[in-house]
């Protein structure tokens, strides 16, 4: 044993120094290399995870928004169609009413015009009857005068 120790130059002080050396190296490498590198790897992984997650999220949101837009668009089209149909109906109603009104008014105007024409005719007839009477009286007077003379 002693010879082995001597041949290989074993020395407990050197053993301890080398062990301490290794410990110091371990601490230094841990502090200056492993810790920051692993931290960087972790942060990068987190960042990538976050990015992927947010991308997924925005994709989902986009899909949602697209769906919403579709429904809104559909609703809008539907209501516009309804509106159009109802307004068309109403316009038709109104138009027919206007035509009816016009017809009735035209009718009433015609009726009143006929009435007035009738009245005028009758009046004229009456006036002419009176005049004819007068003329007949005058003529009779003249005939009578001629006969007397």
């Amino acid at each position: 044993m002693e010879e082995i120790v001597k041949v290989f130059g074993l020395n407990w002080k050197l053993l301890i120094v080398q062990a301490v050396n290794f410990g110091v190296l371990l601490l230094a490498l841990w502090y200056f290399l492993y810790r920051p590198v692993l931290k960087m790897l972790d942060t990068r992984r987190e960042k990538i995870e976050e990015g992927v997650k947010s991308a997924e999220k925005s994709q989902e949101r986009l899909r949602e928004i697209e769906g919403e837009r579709d429904t809104v668009l559909k609703e809008a089209t539907k209501s516009a169609e309804e509106l159009l149909a109802s307004s068309k109906e109403r316009a038709q109603e109104q138009a027919s009413q206007i035509v009816n009104d016009a017809n009735t008014r035209a009718d009433s105007i015609l009726v009143s015009a006929e009435q007035r024409a009738q009245e005028a005719k009758e009046q004229a007839l009456r006036e002419s009857k009176a005049e004819i009477g007068k003329a007949a009286v005058l003529a009779a007077e003249r005939i009578l005068k001629e006969k007397q003379s």
Binding site: L14, N21, L29, R35, V37
Partner: peptide
């Protein structure tokens, strides 16, 4: 022992510069 100190110094230097410029 001297050589192992040199090796340590080299490793330490590499670690320092790599770790600082992450």
């Amino acid at each position: 022992l001297i050589t192992s100190w040199i090796v340590m110094a080299i490793l330490f230097t590499i670690a320092f510069f790599v770790g600082r410029n992450l």
